[in-house]
Amino acid sequence: MKYKDYYAALGIARGASDDDIKKAYRRLARKYHPDVSKEAGAEEKFKDVAEAYQTLKDPQKRAAYDQLGSHAPGQEFEPPPNWQQQYSEAPFAPEDLDLGDLFAHLRGASAAGGGPAGARRARRSLPGQDYEIAVSISVEEAFHGTQINLDLNMPEYDAQGGLRRVPHTVRARIPKGATDGQRLRLPGKGGKGFNGGRDGDLYLNISLRAHPLYRADGHDLYLDLPLAPWEAVLGTSVEVPTPAGAVRLKVPPGTQAGRQLRPAQRGLPKPREGQGDLYAIVQIAVPAKVGDAERELYQRLAQTSAFDPRGHFVESGHAN
């Protein structure tokens, strides 16, 4: 079993008072709770903080934890002799076990006096735990659908009511149409229930990875379409990439920057039917360097053209 330093997780000294423990937990929970925090890695941090708090807030569990002694975090260790008989309600094999799982199932102070918990558990059914996992997929995977393997390592009860970690892999098909913020539910793939309790569920929270070309909003995709000034003025036909392959897009003469050209139904497919759109947003791109001949043409254009892009400044009386 690997040691975890619960005092360090809460940022407190070993001799901290119950009040200090509660305060430290509250402060860290506000900072890292996954429903509240958007900080990177918040979920993992909160898990550590919550696990530490669940053990240290309970005087009996805290005493059991303190008797394990102090080791370096991650160091393999064994509980002292008799520790298991004194505190644990069910047999366990330390090498298979996570310290947090062990303490979650120790008899706490609130349950004291209720007889051996192993006996209670034998009669009671317990539902398995639900888990949420963040899964990030590419725009292409969202478009075509994909298959992912989830390597899971969840605590399970054995026939004696003891706990062990069982690594296993679940294969899930991410159907096409999953997009940013969408969730999928894998029924029964969470923690196993005990004694007839229902198996927990696995929830996948989908996010889309940033793409060099496309930006997603729901099932719609946005793409910048740079045009040369003469293309925008004269109109043209350009090839535009889409997740389903390139399409030809007609750019009408006199196309302004910011205009959205929309090849219909070229966005991400929607879960049951329909498809989002792809919007190509026109940008007028200007060459950073021009040769002499080109410069001369621009100069002639400047002398010939009567176009005044800022005419409305004067009309509204805000210039001159």
């Binding site: 539902p127 892999t169 294969r171 899930a172 159907p175 999928l184 793939k189």
Partner: peptide
């Protein structure tokens, strides 16, 4: 290691009664 295939449900397709909501949420 054994790979289990899993059924996948869209979150959006759930239509639940109050007791079903209680079971899935744990409240």
């Amino acid at each position: 290691m054994q790979i289990e295939a899993s059924e996948v449900l869209w979150f959006e397709q759930h239509v639940l009664t109050l007791p079903e909501l209680a079971e899935l949420s744990g409240l």
